[in-house]
Design a binder for these strands. Structure first.
Lengths: 114, 114
DNA sequence: AAGTATACATAGAAAAACTATGCATAGAAA
DNA sequence: TTTCTATGCATAGTTTTTCTATGTATACTT
């Protein structure tokens, strides 16, 4: 029950969200998207990513589909129904947590308003 | 070098920020302020708080001042010059990280604009 | 031929927060 | 007066997460 635990499990939530957007993705793909979307600020390591994916799989939140591209194996991940449900829950949890942190820290969000 | 590590160390940053605002605080005090400011969403446990305070102390970012209230010991923490410098650095780091997460997750911030 | 990018994986280390204790004072409720 | 709750500090040990460091292998580029 991660009521607290100051944000742990963020990576799992990020992965679920990306799968929701893109339908199916494979590991290497995810690292690139995260890197690109964060201007290189968040660099996922294989040692973080693959265990996180395996955990989501064990939890039944994602499923896999293996295929060969040429001679190279590739494992696509996509959401299960349970995974789809989890996204709303986790996103809200994460948003709420970040809102709390912002309240404490007095952090302003970068806004282009017009 | 916590370039990545998905937000670990947030607690230390929170503590520094609260000390900056309030000048000096003691442990139990901090748990109450955090609870209050986050509407009970973040509940610091002693097992998290005191080790975090001790670590900040060991890093030279805070200093202590012990006193007795009646017969009860109380340990006040306040910022050292090094601690004051750290706040800007860590706050920016945390803000940048949260901005990245928001970008990935597509989280909207609650705004009252007019 | 060598280097870089792609692609998956795991073992072991490190860090952070947690649970569960322990001790003790103080005030309120029963 | 006893018990419960709040205050106040502390640590030992566990769990979780991410990391570093490897290992294997294909594919493309130079």
């Amino acid at each position: 029950m991660p009521t607290n635990e100051l944000i742990k499990g963020t990576l799992g939530t990020i992965i679920l969200k990306l799968l929701q957007e893109n339908g199916k993705m494979y590991g290497y793909d995810i690292t690139r998207v995260v890197k690109q979307r964060t201007d290189g600020k968040i660099l996922l390591k294989e040692g973080s990513l693959y265990p996180a994916l395996h955990k989501l799989l064990a939890e039944g939140l994602v499923k896999t589909e293996e295929m060969l591209i040429g001679n190279r194996p590739r494992v696509y991940y996509s959401l299960t129904p349970a995974g789809k449900k989890q996204i709303a829950i986790r996103t809200e949890e994460l948003a709420g947590f970040m809102e709390s942190i912002r309240t404490i820290m007095g952090i302003q969000t970068t806004l282009s308003h017009g």
